[in-house]
Simulated scan of single mutants.
Amino acid sequence: MARRRRNRRRGGGLGATLLGAALIVAALAAFGVIGWLVFTESNKPGIDAASLCPEDGPRGHLAILLDTTDPVSATQLQLARNRVGALIEAAPDFTRISFATVRADAGGAVRSLCKPPRDASALTANPRLVAERYETAFLRPVTETLDSLLAVPQADSSPIIETLQRFLAAIPGFTEAGADTRREVILVTDLVQHSEVFSFYRGGDWTSFRASGAVDRLARNLSGAEVRILRLPRPAAPQAAVDDFWVRYLDAQGAARVSPSVLGDL
Protein backbone atom coordinates (compact mmCIF):
# COMPACT_ATOMS: atom_id res chain seq x y z
CA MET A 1 0.00 0.00 0.00
CA ALA A 2 2.78 2.39 0.88
CA ARG A 3 4.44 1.66 -2.48
CA ARG A 4 1.28 2.68 -4.36
CA ARG A 5 1.14 5.96 -2.48
CA ARG A 6 4.72 6.68 -3.49
CA ASN A 7 3.82 5.96 -7.11
CA ARG A 8 0.86 8.33 -6.93
CA ARG A 9 3.06 11.03 -5.46
CA ARG A 10 5.53 10.56 -8.28
CA GLY A 11 2.72 10.80 -10.85
CA GLY A 12 1.36 13.92 -9.17
CA GLY A 13 4.81 15.47 -9.13
CA LEU A 14 5.21 14.83 -12.83
CA GLY A 15 1.79 16.32 -13.53
CA ALA A 16 2.62 19.41 -11.51
CA THR A 17 5.90 19.77 -13.40
CA LEU A 18 4.16 19.49 -16.76
CA LEU A 19 1.48 21.97 -15.67
CA GLY A 20 4.16 24.40 -14.49
CA ALA A 21 6.00 24.07 -17.77
CA ALA A 22 2.79 24.69 -19.71
CA LEU A 23 2.08 27.82 -17.67
CA ILE A 24 5.61 29.10 -18.29
CA VAL A 25 5.23 28.49 -22.03
CA ALA A 26 1.86 30.26 -22.01
CA ALA A 27 3.31 33.20 -20.09
CA LEU A 28 6.23 33.48 -22.48
CA ALA A 29 3.82 33.36 -25.44
CA ALA A 30 1.69 36.10 -23.87
CA PHE A 31 4.73 38.28 -23.26
CA GLY A 32 5.76 37.63 -26.84
CA VAL A 33 2.38 38.76 -28.15
CA ILE A 34 2.48 41.88 -25.98
CA GLY A 35 6.02 42.63 -27.13
CA TRP A 36 4.99 42.17 -30.76
CA LEU A 37 2.02 44.53 -30.30
CA VAL A 38 4.16 47.17 -28.64
CA PHE A 39 6.82 46.82 -31.33
CA THR A 40 4.21 47.08 -34.09
CA GLU A 41 2.62 50.17 -32.56
CA SER A 42 5.96 51.85 -31.96
CA ASN A 43 6.89 51.38 -35.62
CA LYS A 44 3.67 52.81 -37.04
CA PRO A 45 3.92 56.19 -38.82
CA GLY A 46 3.24 59.25 -36.70
CA ILE A 47 -0.04 61.16 -36.90
CA ASP A 48 -0.21 64.74 -38.15
CA ALA A 49 -1.88 66.81 -35.43
CA ALA A 50 -3.68 69.15 -37.84
CA SER A 51 -5.14 66.65 -40.31
CA LEU A 52 -5.17 63.52 -38.06
CA CYS A 53 -3.68 61.65 -41.04
CA PRO A 54 -0.73 59.23 -40.85
CA GLU A 55 2.50 60.88 -41.92
CA ASP A 56 2.80 58.39 -44.78
CA GLY A 57 -0.64 59.36 -46.10
CA PRO A 58 -4.30 58.38 -45.62
CA ARG A 59 -5.57 54.85 -46.19
CA GLY A 60 -8.28 56.09 -48.54
CA HIS A 61 -10.41 59.08 -49.56
CA LEU A 62 -14.08 59.93 -49.08
CA ALA A 63 -14.80 63.21 -50.90
CA ILE A 64 -18.26 64.70 -50.32
CA LEU A 65 -19.62 67.49 -52.54
CA LEU A 66 -22.92 69.06 -51.44
CA ASP A 67 -25.11 71.05 -53.82
CA THR A 68 -27.89 73.16 -52.33
CA THR A 69 -27.84 75.88 -54.99
CA ASP A 70 -31.47 74.97 -55.83
CA PRO A 71 -34.34 74.53 -53.34
CA VAL A 72 -34.00 71.46 -51.12
CA SER A 73 -36.76 70.28 -48.80
CA ALA A 74 -36.26 69.61 -45.10
CA THR A 75 -36.91 65.91 -45.75
CA GLN A 76 -34.20 65.78 -48.41
CA LEU A 77 -31.75 67.59 -46.17
CA GLN A 78 -32.36 65.11 -43.38
CA LEU A 79 -32.01 62.16 -45.74
CA ALA A 80 -28.75 63.61 -47.07
CA ARG A 81 -27.52 64.17 -43.52
CA ASN A 82 -28.32 60.57 -42.54
CA ARG A 83 -26.81 58.98 -45.68
CA VAL A 84 -23.59 60.98 -45.52
CA GLY A 85 -23.26 60.34 -41.79
CA ALA A 86 -23.63 56.60 -42.36
CA LEU A 87 -20.95 56.64 -45.08
CA ILE A 88 -18.54 58.45 -42.76
CA GLU A 89 -19.30 55.98 -39.97
CA ALA A 90 -18.60 53.04 -42.29
CA ALA A 91 -15.34 54.47 -43.67
CA PRO A 92 -12.18 52.64 -42.54
CA ASP A 93 -9.87 54.28 -40.01
CA PHE A 94 -7.50 56.90 -41.44
CA THR A 95 -9.72 57.58 -44.44
CA ARG A 96 -9.42 61.26 -45.40
CA ILE A 97 -12.91 62.77 -45.21
CA SER A 98 -13.19 65.93 -47.35
CA PHE A 99 -16.11 68.33 -47.78
CA ALA A 100 -17.01 71.13 -50.17
CA THR A 101 -20.17 72.76 -51.42
CA VAL A 102 -21.25 73.93 -54.86
CA ARG A 103 -21.23 77.71 -54.89
CA ALA A 104 -22.13 80.32 -57.49
CA ASP A 105 -18.47 81.35 -57.76
CA ALA A 106 -17.29 77.70 -57.88
CA GLY A 107 -15.14 78.53 -54.86
CA GLY A 108 -15.40 77.64 -51.21
CA ALA A 109 -12.79 76.20 -48.92
CA VAL A 110 -12.20 72.46 -48.74
CA ARG A 111 -12.48 71.03 -45.23
CA SER A 112 -10.63 67.79 -44.70
CA LEU A 113 -9.71 65.47 -41.82
CA CYS A 114 -8.64 61.87 -41.47
CA LYS A 115 -10.90 59.61 -39.47
CA PRO A 116 -8.96 58.38 -36.41
CA PRO A 117 -9.67 55.08 -34.62
CA ARG A 118 -12.65 55.23 -32.27
CA ASP A 119 -11.12 52.83 -29.74
CA ALA A 120 -7.85 51.06 -29.00
CA SER A 121 -6.36 48.22 -26.98
CA ALA A 122 -5.26 49.11 -23.47
CA LEU A 123 -2.01 47.25 -24.24
CA THR A 124 -0.88 49.78 -26.83
CA ALA A 125 -2.79 53.02 -26.13
CA ASN A 126 -5.05 54.85 -23.71
CA PRO A 127 -8.61 53.91 -24.77
CA ARG A 128 -10.11 56.97 -23.06
CA LEU A 129 -7.78 59.40 -24.84
CA VAL A 130 -8.36 57.65 -28.18
CA ALA A 131 -12.13 57.94 -27.75
CA GLU A 132 -11.86 61.60 -26.72
CA ARG A 133 -9.74 62.40 -29.79
CA TYR A 134 -12.29 60.72 -32.05
CA GLU A 135 -15.16 62.71 -30.53
CA THR A 136 -13.55 66.14 -30.15
CA ALA A 137 -10.96 66.30 -32.93
CA PHE A 138 -12.91 64.46 -35.63
CA LEU A 139 -16.60 63.73 -35.08
CA ARG A 140 -17.58 67.13 -33.68
CA PRO A 141 -15.91 69.26 -36.38
CA VAL A 142 -17.10 66.91 -39.13
CA THR A 143 -20.68 67.10 -37.85
CA GLU A 144 -20.52 70.90 -37.60
CA THR A 145 -19.06 71.14 -41.10
CA LEU A 146 -21.72 68.90 -42.60
CA ASP A 147 -24.53 70.80 -40.92
CA SER A 148 -23.15 74.19 -42.03
CA LEU A 149 -22.63 73.10 -45.64
CA LEU A 150 -26.14 71.68 -45.90
CA ALA A 151 -27.40 75.11 -44.82
CA VAL A 152 -25.67 77.02 -47.66
CA PRO A 153 -28.27 79.33 -49.28
CA GLN A 154 -29.65 78.92 -52.79
CA ALA A 155 -27.89 80.57 -55.73
CA ASP A 156 -28.63 81.71 -59.28
CA SER A 157 -26.13 79.29 -60.82
CA SER A 158 -24.97 75.72 -60.22
CA PRO A 159 -21.39 75.21 -61.44
CA ILE A 160 -21.28 71.55 -60.45
CA ILE A 161 -18.59 70.35 -62.86
CA GLU A 162 -16.28 73.31 -62.16
CA THR A 163 -16.66 72.94 -58.39
CA LEU A 164 -16.11 69.19 -58.53
CA GLN A 165 -12.80 69.59 -60.35
CA ARG A 166 -11.56 72.33 -58.04
CA PHE A 167 -12.63 70.27 -55.05
CA LEU A 168 -10.78 67.11 -56.12
CA ALA A 169 -7.66 69.07 -57.07
CA ALA A 170 -7.62 70.73 -53.62
CA ILE A 171 -7.79 67.48 -51.61
CA PRO A 172 -4.25 66.60 -50.46
CA GLY A 173 -3.12 63.40 -52.13
CA PHE A 174 -6.37 62.63 -53.97
CA THR A 175 -5.12 62.93 -57.53
CA GLU A 176 -1.76 61.32 -56.66
CA ALA A 177 -3.26 58.31 -54.88
CA GLY A 178 -2.18 54.93 -56.20
CA ALA A 179 -4.46 52.23 -57.55
CA ASP A 180 -4.43 50.44 -54.17
CA THR A 181 -5.85 53.49 -52.35
CA ARG A 182 -9.63 53.52 -52.33
CA ARG A 183 -11.20 56.77 -53.50
CA GLU A 184 -14.93 57.40 -53.22
CA VAL A 185 -16.72 60.59 -54.29
CA ILE A 186 -20.18 61.42 -52.95
CA LEU A 187 -22.30 63.90 -54.93
CA VAL A 188 -25.39 65.26 -53.17
CA THR A 189 -26.94 67.17 -56.04
CA ASP A 190 -29.74 67.47 -58.58
CA LEU A 191 -27.10 67.18 -61.35
CA VAL A 192 -28.58 70.20 -63.14
CA GLN A 193 -25.46 72.04 -64.23
CA HIS A 194 -25.98 75.77 -64.90
CA SER A 195 -23.00 78.04 -65.47
CA GLU A 196 -21.32 80.11 -68.16
CA VAL A 197 -19.27 77.09 -69.20
CA PHE A 198 -22.24 74.76 -69.67
CA SER A 199 -25.95 74.86 -68.83
CA PHE A 200 -28.84 72.46 -69.28
CA TYR A 201 -31.20 75.42 -69.09
CA ARG A 202 -29.63 76.81 -72.28
CA GLY A 203 -30.19 73.52 -74.10
CA GLY A 204 -26.78 72.05 -73.38
CA ASP A 205 -26.15 68.32 -73.74
CA TRP A 206 -23.16 66.03 -74.21
CA THR A 207 -23.02 66.72 -77.95
CA SER A 208 -22.78 70.47 -77.45
CA PHE A 209 -20.30 70.00 -74.59
CA ARG A 210 -18.04 67.91 -76.79
CA ALA A 211 -18.41 70.27 -79.74
CA SER A 212 -17.30 73.19 -77.55
CA GLY A 213 -13.94 71.51 -76.95
CA ALA A 214 -14.63 71.17 -73.23
CA VAL A 215 -13.93 67.42 -73.30
CA ASP A 216 -10.28 68.17 -74.04
CA ARG A 217 -10.12 70.15 -70.79
CA LEU A 218 -11.32 67.31 -68.58
CA ALA A 219 -8.93 66.57 -65.72
CA ARG A 220 -9.71 62.83 -65.75
CA ASN A 221 -8.94 62.80 -62.03
CA LEU A 222 -11.68 60.29 -61.23
CA SER A 223 -9.63 57.47 -62.73
CA GLY A 224 -10.38 54.35 -60.69
CA ALA A 225 -12.63 56.21 -58.24
CA GLU A 226 -16.10 55.13 -57.16
CA VAL A 227 -18.81 57.76 -57.49
CA ARG A 228 -21.98 57.65 -55.41
CA ILE A 229 -24.75 60.05 -56.43
CA LEU A 230 -27.38 61.01 -53.86
CA ARG A 231 -29.72 62.69 -56.30
CA LEU A 232 -32.14 65.47 -55.46
CA PRO A 233 -34.96 65.11 -58.01
CA ARG A 234 -35.72 68.18 -60.12
CA PRO A 235 -38.82 67.40 -62.29
CA ALA A 236 -38.54 70.60 -64.34
CA ALA A 237 -35.04 69.71 -65.59
CA PRO A 238 -34.46 68.13 -69.03
CA GLN A 239 -34.12 64.67 -67.54
CA ALA A 240 -32.95 62.73 -70.60
CA ALA A 241 -30.19 65.23 -71.41
CA VAL A 242 -29.07 65.39 -67.76
CA ASP A 243 -28.85 61.61 -67.40
CA ASP A 244 -27.04 61.10 -70.71
CA PHE A 245 -24.55 63.88 -69.97
CA TRP A 246 -23.50 62.61 -66.56
CA VAL A 247 -23.13 59.00 -67.71
CA ARG A 248 -20.75 60.15 -70.44
CA TYR A 249 -19.01 62.79 -68.32
CA LEU A 250 -18.17 60.46 -65.43
CA ASP A 251 -17.03 57.77 -67.85
CA ALA A 252 -14.75 60.28 -69.62
CA GLN A 253 -13.34 61.33 -66.24
CA GLY A 254 -12.40 57.70 -65.57
CA ALA A 255 -14.85 56.74 -62.82
CA ALA A 256 -14.64 53.02 -62.09
CA ARG A 257 -18.21 52.65 -60.84
CA VAL A 258 -21.22 54.94 -60.45
CA SER A 259 -23.97 54.18 -57.91
CA PRO A 260 -27.00 56.50 -58.09
CA SER A 261 -29.88 56.76 -55.63
CA VAL A 262 -32.66 59.32 -55.14
CA LEU A 263 -33.33 61.49 -52.11
CA GLY A 264 -37.07 61.97 -52.55
CA ASP A 265 -39.46 63.84 -50.30
CA LEU A 266 -42.86 62.23 -51.07
Results as ranks from 00 to 15, higher is better:
138 F>H: 01
143 T>A: 10
139 L>R: 07
155 A>W: 10
124 T>I: 08
142 V>E: 06
148 S>R: 13
150 L>K: 12
156 D>Y: 08
128 R>V: 07
127 P>N: 02
164 L>W: 11
141 P>E: 05
140 R>S: 02
126 N>T: 06
151 A>H: 12
154 Q>H: 13
163 T>R: 15
124 T>W: 01
125 A>R: 08
137 A>I: 01
145 T>R: 08
131 A>Y: 03
162 E>S: 15
150 L>D: 12
135 E>S: 05
125 A>V: 03
145 T>K: 07
138 F>Y: 05
163 T>I: 15
166 R>S: 10
147 D>W: 05
156 D>A: 15
139 L>E: 06
136 T>C: 04
156 D>H: 12
138 F>I: 04
163 T>F: 12
149 L>I: 12
144 E>I: 04
135 E>N: 01
160 I>H: 08
158 S>D: 11
129 L>H: 06
136 T>I: 03
153 P>W: 11
140 R>M: 03
124 T>V: 09
142 V>D: 05
151 A>L: 12
130 V>C: 01
136 T>V: 02
137 A>V: 00
133 R>K: 06
124 T>N: 04
159 P>R: 08
156 D>Q: 15
149 L>D: 14
130 V>G: 03
160 I>P: 07
161 I>N: 07
148 S>F: 08
126 N>I: 02
164 L>D: 10
162 E>V: 14
156 D>S: 15
165 Q>A: 12
131 A>D: 01
151 A>D: 15
158 S>E: 13
147 D>H: 09
152 V>I: 12
149 L>M: 15
127 P>I: 00
151 A>G: 11
125 A>P: 05
142 V>M: 10
155 A>P: 13
138 F>L: 01
152 V>D: 12
161 I>G: 06
134 Y>T: 00
138 F>M: 04
133 R>Q: 07
130 V>W: 00
129 L>N: 05
157 S>D: 13
130 V>M: 01
126 N>R: 00
137 A>C: 03
140 R>P: 02
147 D>Y: 07
153 P>K: 11
131 A>Q: 04
148 S>P: 07
158 S>C: 13
136 T>L: 04
154 Q>T: 15
125 A>S: 09
155 A>I: 13
162 E>P: 07
152 V>P: 06
154 Q>F: 11
132 E>Q: 00
151 A>T: 14
129 L>E: 10
128 R>M: 02
165 Q>F: 11
158 S>L: 09
134 Y>A: 00
124 T>L: 04
149 L>K: 11
125 A>Y: 02
164 L>E: 12
144 E>Y: 05
145 T>D: 12
127 P>C: 02
140 R>C: 03
129 L>S: 09
131 A>H: 02
